[in-house]
C-alpha cells in the first residue's frame, strides 16, 4: 500500500514541487496573506473606544481619508519622495553597474561585494550616519565652517524632504546595483559590435541596444526601490523633520498613539493600491518606450 502512494508521489512533478514550496508557502500564508486579509476587513470597521472596534461594515474610513486633505497630501508626498529616490538611485547606480559589466575584466565579484559593503551595517546606523553628515555640527557644516567659507551652519541640509531622498537612495543603492548589473552583464557583446558595424556610434548604440536590453534590470531596480521606500517610516522620522513626514508616519501613529486601527488600515490599503497601480504603469510604459526607441 505504502509503496503505491510512494509511486504516485514520485511520479508526480506537481507533488514534488509543492513539497519544495511548502515551507515558503506556509510562511507567506500566515505572515503575509492572513494579516493582509485582516487589514482589509479592519479598514471597513469603526474604532469606537480605546480598545473597542465596531465590526459592522462601513466605507466610512475611506470617506474620512478623502475628506481630510492631509491624507491625500501625505500620500502624494510619499509617492513624490519615492519617485525622486528611485530617480536618484538609478542615475547613480546605472553608470556604476555599466562600468562593472563592461569595463571590469577581472574580479567582477569583488567589485560587487565592495559595492555592497556599506550595507553590511544596520539600516538604522546608516540613517544615523547621514544625520552625522548633514547635521548642524555634522561633517559638511564643520568642514565648511572650519575653512571659513560660512559663519553659521547651513540649516537646510537636514530635516527636510531632500535629506529623506538622499538618505533613502543611499540606503537602497545596493539593491538597485544588483539587478542592473545582472541585466547589463548578460548582454552579448557581439550585439554592441553589430550595432557599431551597422553605422552607429557608441552613444547611439547605448540608446538603441544596451539600454533597451537592460530594461528588465531597470524595471527590477525601479520596483525594488520604489515599493519599499514609499512605505518607509524610519528615515522620514529621523532625518525628515515635519516637512519630510510621509503617509507611512501617519499610518504608524494611527496604529499607535492616535489609536484608530480602521483608519490606519484604510490608509494602508489605499497606499498599497496606489503602489500596485504605479508599479503596473511603470512596467507598461518602460516597455512601450523601449520599443519606440530602438
Amino acid at each position: 500500500m505504502s509503496s503505491t502512494i510512494q509511486n504516485i508521489y514520485f511520479r508526480s512533478d506537481q507533488a514534488k514541487a509543492y513539497t519544495l514550496l511548502s515551507p515558503a508557502l506556509i510562511l507567506v500564508i500566515f505572515a503575509m496573506a492572513a494579516p493582509m486579509i485582516v487589514m482589509i476587513f479592519t479598514s471597513f470597521n469603526t474604532q469606537i473606544s480605546m480598545i473597542e472596534i465596531d465590526r459592522t461594515f462601513t466605507t466610512g474610513r475611506y470617506e474620512d481619508f478623502f475628506s481630510k486633505p492631509i491624507f491625500s497630501m501625505l500620500l502624494f508626498r510619499s509617492v513624490k519622495i519615492s519617485f525622486f529616490v528611485t530617480l536618484l538611485t538609478l542615475l547613480t547606480t546605472y553608470p556604476l553597474a555599466y562600468y562593472i559589466a563592461f569595463y571590469v575584466k577581472k574580479n567582477k565579484m569583488l567589485w560587487i561585494v565592495l559595492m555592497t559593503l556599506p550595507f553590511w551595517t544596520s539600516y538604522l546606523l546608516r540613517v544615523f550616519s547621514w544625520r552625522v553628515i548633514l547635521g548642524n555640527k555634522g561633517v559638511i557644516n564643520s568642514a565648511l565652517m572650519g575653512t571659513g567659507m560660512i559663519d553659521e551652519p547651513l540649516g537646510f541640509l537636514l530635516y527636510n524632504q531632500a535629506a529623506v531622498i538622499i538618505t533613502l537612495s543611499h540606503a537602497w543603492a545596493a539593491f538597485a546595483i544588483l539587478p542592473l548589473y545582472v541585466s547589463l552583464d548578460k548582454i552579448d557583446k557581439s550585439l554592441l559590435e553589430a550595432s557599431y558595424d551597422l553605422g552607429n556610434t557608441k552613444f547611439e548604440t547605448f540608446w538603441r541596444v544596451t539600454f533597451p536590453l537592460s530594461l528588465p534590470g531597470v524595471i527590477g531596480a525601479i520596483l525594488i526601490i520604489f515599493i519599499p521606500t514609499v512605505g518607509d517610516y524610519v528615515t522620514p522620522q529621523l532625518v525628515g523633520g515635519t516637512d519630510g513626514r510621509m503617509l507611512s508616519n501617519m499610518i504608524q501613529s494611527l496604529f499607535g498613539r492616535a489609536n484608530n486601527f480602521p483608519l490606519g488600515a484604510a490608509s494602508a490599503v489605499l497606499m498599497l493600491t496606489t503602489v500596485c497601480l504605479i508599479a503596473a504603469l511603470v512596467t507598461y510604459i518602460t516597455k512601450k518606450v523601449s520599443m519606440r526607441m530602438s
Partner: peptide
C-alpha cells in the same frame, strides 16, 4: 565594410 557574426548577433528586442 559589414560583418556577419559567428553567433549572428540578431538583436533580440
Amino acid at each position: 565594410s559589414n560583418m556577419v557574426f559567428q553567433n549572428y548577433a540578431i538583436f533580440p528586442h
